[in-house]
């Protein structure tokens, strides 16, 4: 007989000071918050039981996350609002659970589903012609750049196919909006794309001076449509 499972997806923010917490520390942070909140979390089997908590995609240290996801399994059912309120009572400044939904029967984890993410990058440049330059760059069908491969060997990759959308605004600041391939199948870090753009435009690239936020994550269906992970 199938045992009933109670899986929930939490959407949360990780910003301001909490940007400086790395992924493993974030996991610990959540585990402790869940304990303090008295949420009936389910544990794994085996000799060293651990809470069933699964993050969709690690957020790099320093980057803000406005719609991050974590899936958790409970021992018993709990109203989504209740779960949200209880956990929010345990969050530090800079972290907030923004939405909770019960996962559908047999729905995959966020980590398995995620295919793309939106990023916003506030650049450290002031160039009135930036929009035009980016537009002509976008027209180039192949963006080849060297990156460190798995065995610490430099290899050349084409990142253009991994950029699903790319725009900019140049009002007060120069801001790039991009939708990039994300997940276990294909993944493009915003850093690599930004380095490519900076190099092509002959700018000094200092990644730390660029303020990046991940604003949403999506799954993608067969026909290429994107759906947010909360839907």
């Amino acid at each position: 007989m199938n045992r009933m499972t109670y899986d929930y997806r939490l959407q949360f923010t990780k910003r301001d000071k909490m940007r400086y917490i790395g992924h493993l520390d974030l996991l610990k942070y959540f585990q402790r918050a869940i304990k303090r909140a008295n949420v009936p979390i389910a544990f794994s089997m085996g000799f060293n039981p651990h809470q069933l908590v699964s993050f969709t995609m690690p957020l790099p240290l320093g980057m803000s996350g406005l719609a991050e996801y974590v899936d958790i399994r409970l021992e018993s059912e709990m109203p989504c609002d209740d779960l949200k309120t209880r956990l929010n009572a345990q969050m530090s400044d800079g972290m907030e659970i923004t939405a909770v939904r019960r996962l559908r029967e047999d729905e995959d984890t966020g980590a398995a589903l995620v295919a793309a993410a939106d990023y916003t990058a506030v650049l450290d440049i002031c160039d009135p012609d930036f929009a035009d330059k980016l537009a002509s760059l976008k027209a180039v069908p192949v963006w080849e750049i060297e990156k460190l491969g798995k065995k610490k060997k430099l290899k050349t990759v084409d990142i253009r196919p991994l950029i699903y959308a790319l725009d900019c605004e140049t009002a007060e600041n120069t801001v790039i909006h991009a939708r990039l391939a994300t997940g276990s199948n294909s993944n493009l870090k915003p850093e690599l794309m930004l380095r490519y753009i900076y190099e092509k435009l002959g700018l000094d690239f200092d990644y730390i001076r660029i303020k990046i936020a991940r604003t949403e994550m999506y799954r993608r269906d067969e026909s290429g449509n994107f759906t947010g992970l909360m839907e």
Binding site: K17, M18, Y20, I21, G22, D25, R32, A33, R36, L61, G62, Q90, S92, D93, G94, I208, R209
Partner: peptide, 21 residues
């Protein structure tokens, strides 16, 4: 902000822990 991203373990310098007064 910018300095914190250039040092090891920036969380040493931010406070904001659980139960901080």
């Amino acid at each position: 902000d910018e300095i914190l991203l250039r040092v090891e373990k920036p969380a040493r310098y931010i406070g904001n822990e659980i139960n901080m007064v």
